[in-house]
Amino acid sequence: MTRVALILALLAAPVHAQDAGEQARAAARAIEEAAASLESADRSRDRVAALTRTVRAYEDGLAAMRVGLRAATIRETALSRELQARESEIAQLLGVLGAVGDKAGPRSLAHPQGPRGTVRAGLLLASVTPALEARAADLRADLAEVTELRTLQQQAADHLASGLSGVQQARTALSQAIADRTGLPRRFTDDPVRTAILISATETLDDFADGLSQLTQGQPTAPEEPADLENLRPLPMPVRGTVLRQPGEADAAGVRRPGLVIATQPAALVTAPAAATVRYAGPLLDYGLVVILEPRADLLFVLAGLDAAYVEAGQVLPAGGPVGLMGGSVAADGVSPSGEGGGAPGSETLYMEVREGDEPVDPRRWFATDKG
């Protein structure tokens, strides 16, 4: 490649100026703030509410950290490959810059075509030199960014491990605070015998939902309906995650269900989207552990696939109150094969169905989702 062609090729190369590590830095600050809130939670009058906010803060920080770490890794890999691929051209560029900066005597600037050729060569050199120097500056910036990103990756990994440890500690503290909690309002008293009979006679979620009213005949169930429940829509999702399947989409076995399937990280916290009465909490059919919330009469939120439930039938939860935890575990080094330490969307799945009256409805009528 001639020097002119080399110069044109280098000047045409794209230059990336974005800071791929800013997300990771912001996430590190969020994790540090969550750690501070964990320390202050013990002094809170309502430890359950304080620890719930702390767990969610950790989960938000960890989610952002995974995204930031992945972006930094992709950027560093792309820069390293680009620099490696252009290694020979970079060497030639350095040679050109060395020649331009040579302080040799007048003979080195003499042109074979005489004074006129020398003038033309000088004008060309004068026009190209600033561009070469600018490209060299970009090269130095890329090299510095690679170094910075590699340092950032190590720092992010340390913050990720610290955050994973902190969120586990917060979840443990939350579980203990819930176990110690007293005085949670109740709308009705659960009858385990009648519940067991209903479950044994149930073949579908529809049948079970329809039969719930039989369990509490003569007892008030739904909390007093907030005047602004309709105005609160869209409600926050009950768990941090990514929608895997929309209502009516078939799964791998060809089964279609009217609710959302949400991928979550291991041990993610599930919370009540609105103030609601717990109509049921326990295993059900092939749905695993199920919690059914009733925010108002004739409206049910079905949450299925939990690993642990913090609630009992009859209790009234405030908006944002802890419902339970998803399954899965995190490795001691902060990198889980099931995904919490990495950039995967999540290994656990929560199924959420919304029922109005006797029929399931599209959950997107009530909830803000990241798809659809």
Score class of each variant (00 low, 15 high):
residue 94 L to C: 06
residue 328 G to D: 07
residue 212 L to R: 00
residue 193 V to Q: 12
residue 223 P to T: 05
residue 80 S to M: 03
residue 38 L to D: 04
residue 185 P to I: 03
residue 211 G to R: 02
residue 371 K to I: 09
residue 126 A to D: 12
residue 327 G to P: 03
residue 339 G to R: 06
residue 289 L to R: 15
residue 98 G to R: 13
residue 292 I to Y: 08
residue 120 R to N: 14
residue 335 V to W: 03
residue 37 S to M: 13
residue 80 S to C: 02
residue 360 P to C: 06
residue 268 A to R: 11
residue 292 I to H: 09
residue 158 D to S: 11
residue 118 T to S: 15
residue 197 I to Y: 11
residue 76 E to N: 06
residue 353 E to T: 06
residue 26 A to E: 15
residue 108 S to M: 09
residue 216 T to W: 06
residue 205 L to F: 04
residue 153 Q to V: 09
residue 187 R to N: 12
residue 251 D to A: 02
residue 320 G to T: 10
residue 174 L to H: 09
residue 320 G to K: 05
residue 372 G to P: 00
residue 135 R to M: 04
residue 262 I to Y: 04
residue 214 Q to G: 01
residue 173 A to Q: 13
residue 37 S to T: 11
residue 71 A to E: 13
residue 267 A to L: 14
residue 260 L to Y: 07
residue 168 Q to N: 14
residue 23 Q to M: 04
residue 74 I to F: 11
residue 33 E to S: 07
residue 212 L to H: 06
residue 23 Q to D: 14
residue 303 L to S: 10
residue 211 G to L: 00
residue 56 R to V: 10
residue 253 A to P: 00
residue 66 R to A: 12
residue 45 R to I: 07
residue 335 V to G: 00
residue 13 A to I: 04
residue 236 P to V: 00
residue 368 A to D: 06
residue 125 L to R: 15
residue 78 A to C: 03
residue 222 A to C: 00
residue 35 A to I: 00
residue 370 D to S: 01
residue 370 D to F: 10
residue 215 L to I: 03
residue 119 V to D: 07
residue 257 R to T: 02
residue 214 Q to H: 00
residue 309 A to D: 10
residue 136 A to G: 14
residue 268 A to S: 14
residue 108 S to P: 02
residue 269 L to C: 09
residue 241 G to L: 05
residue 71 A to Q: 13
residue 135 R to L: 09
residue 123 L to M: 13
residue 227 A to S: 03
residue 270 V to T: 10
residue 136 A to F: 12
residue 144 A to G: 11
residue 137 A to M: 08
residue 271 T to F: 06
residue 192 P to F: 05
residue 149 L to V: 01
residue 18 Q to E: 15
residue 251 D to I: 00
residue 84 Q to T: 08
residue 74 I to M: 14
residue 354 V to P: 01
residue 113 Q to D: 15
residue 74 I to L: 15
residue 290 V to K: 07
residue 62 L to R: 05
residue 64 A to F: 00
residue 13 A to R: 15
residue 21 G to E: 11
residue 46 D to I: 08
residue 82 E to V: 08
residue 60 D to V: 15
residue 354 V to A: 04
residue 171 R to F: 01
residue 313 A to I: 07
residue 140 R to G: 15
residue 100 V to A: 09
residue 348 E to D: 08
residue 186 R to L: 06
residue 185 P to Y: 08
residue 92 Q to I: 10
residue 341 G to Y: 04
residue 57 A to M: 07
residue 97 L to R: 14
residue 108 S to T: 12
residue 368 A to Y: 03
residue 291 V to D: 08
residue 22 E to F: 02
residue 200 S to A: 14
residue 235 L to Y: 04
residue 220 P to M: 01
residue 177 A to Q: 12
residue 366 W to A: 00
residue 130 P to N: 04
residue 101 G to M: 01
residue 321 G to L: 12
residue 138 D to Y: 10
residue 118 T to Q: 15
residue 365 R to L: 09
residue 121 A to H: 11
residue 361 V to P: 00
residue 159 H to L: 00
residue 304 A to T: 11
residue 121 A to R: 12
residue 309 A to W: 13
residue 10 L to A: 14
residue 315 Q to N: 13
residue 128 V to Y: 07
residue 3 R to S: 13
residue 111 H to P: 08
